[in-house]
Amino acid sequence: MSEGPGATAHRAVTVRGPLSDARASEQARGDHHAAPLAAASWLLTTAMDLHRMAGALAEGLTAESGDDAEAVARLTSRWTSLHRDGGPPAEHTRLEALVEIRRPRTRRPALLWQWSGADPVAALAASSGRLARELVAVSQAAPLAEAFVGPVVLAPETAVHFVHETLGHSLEADNYRDYAAGCGLVVGSTVAGPQLTVVDGPLPGLETSRPRDDEGHTSRSTPLVEAGVVAGVLTDAREARRQRLPRTGNGRRAFGAAEALPRMSALHVARGTTPHAELVRPVRHGLYCRGAWGGGSVEEFFVVRPACAEWIEDGELTGRFVYGFDVKGRKISGLGALGSVGDDMGVFNPVTGCGKYGQELPVSMRSPSLAFDRLCAVPIAPASPSPPP
């Protein structure tokens, strides 16, 4: 294997096209023959299984909307070895599954599903009901016409991104020092009701859980928010020394990076007590957001992009859907608007990385649904047309 900050190798299979004419292609990088990767034959068989399941979802979308839909499934076995400060290399092999449902005519992606873990076929099967409902919603949705400010309920797969952007990034020690404490997210301050508890650290079912960080320090469970009160900060070695904070085992570095940064490892929001129906029932006019296409954190501000949302009227879901919007605002205001935490739970083990200072790293998360008394949903501005030549 290569030397330096670390080494990597991967083997991947991509399957695309209609079920009747599925086409597979393979890619490999690095010394994949020597790395502890999944066998090529198993990857091909499993990728074909993922594509068959995704193809059934695509056919359902075609029948629902009349637009041709295409399934693409990619399965990767990836090995990395990172040299840790004062210890042996940290080696890890992971499976990454990425499924996309595309609309070739409209060029508008309808669904993106990603999973990292031991059994991607079982994970996709477990998610298929939710994904089918999300596809129906997207096929029926219209663009959000104007900004909406009012009650918003986030399904678990959307809620994880809200917590990631508002709390996870803000309570990474360098960000805490640079801006979060000055914006009101200071240890000891109350930022939400007593129903909110958030922890980062090794947890079963979260793929990015590790016994040690990339500096060789033992990972530990670190409360970030306890009963609505900011309780902790995630540190690497440098920020722990600089701010005289305890080491939490959150020094992580991407492959090829020279230094570790304080990063989330595996984020968990404690289950609440409110049944799902009771999250919607008090809402006279609001949005129920599903899916997620990502998010962002810029100092005191956050943004989350749901796949779609369903209007709530008089405590009932209406079957009227919108898409093409961001939920955004000030972090402290969004957290303060949290009203209820659901008794459900969703897990997000991503393939795509979370970016920080050019380092892309995945962060696994799990969360119940979250209901807010007041958030802001803003239509995504259309891309500006290119100037004439």
Rank of each mutant, 00 (worst) to 15 (best):
S77A: 14
G329W: 14
H51N: 01
E165M: 03
A58Y: 04
V199N: 00
E310S: 01
G201F: 00
R284E: 14
A337N: 13
S333E: 15
A231D: 03
A142I: 01
A58H: 03
L196K: 00
A237V: 15
H10R: 15
V230T: 12
A132C: 06
T318P: 11
S209K: 08
P18Y: 07
L370G: 02
V351Y: 02
Q27P: 00
S364V: 03
L224C: 10
E146R: 13
V322P: 06
L50R: 07
T62M: 02
E3Q: 13
E259S: 13
G334S: 10
R212F: 15
R253V: 07
R105I: 01
Q243M: 14
W115N: 10
T45E: 02
G324H: 04
P109S: 10
S20P: 00
P368H: 02
N175E: 13
R366K: 04
G272W: 00
A97N: 08
L185H: 02
L167S: 00
A54R: 00
E3F: 10
P202E: 04
V198A: 01
G6Y: 08
T248K: 00
A309R: 03
S20W: 03
R241A: 14
S127K: 12
N349P: 06
V191M: 04
R366H: 13
A123D: 15
G272E: 09
L375W: 03
R252G: 01
K328M: 12
E207F: 15
S127H: 15
S221W: 01
C308Q: 14
A173P: 06
G232I: 08
R29F: 09
S189H: 11
P246H: 09
A132D: 13
D174K: 12
W311E: 11
I332D: 11
P389Q: 14
P379I: 07
E100W: 01
A260D: 14
G358E: 10
W293R: 08
T318I: 08
A254H: 09
I380W: 05
E360A: 13
G291T: 10
L44C: 06
P275N: 12
L375Q: 00
E313Q: 10
D236P: 08
G4E: 12
P246E: 12
R241W: 14
S219P: 01
A254F: 09
Y288N: 05
V280Y: 15
V327Y: 07
P282S: 10
P104A: 06
G358A: 10
G4R: 09
A180I: 08
G256W: 03
G66F: 09
F302N: 09
R284F: 09
R16A: 09
L135T: 11
T208Q: 12
E146M: 08
A63P: 04
G319P: 07
T352K: 07
T222I: 06
L135I: 09
Q140D: 14
L234P: 03
D214Y: 14
L317F: 11
A137M: 12
S189P: 00
V347N: 01
T166H: 03
P223V: 03
T80D: 11
H161T: 14
L144R: 11
M1N: 11
Q359S: 10
P143H: 02
S170L: 05
G60E: 13
L135G: 06
S369I: 02
A118D: 13
V72R: 02
A71V: 05
G346T: 02
R210W: 01
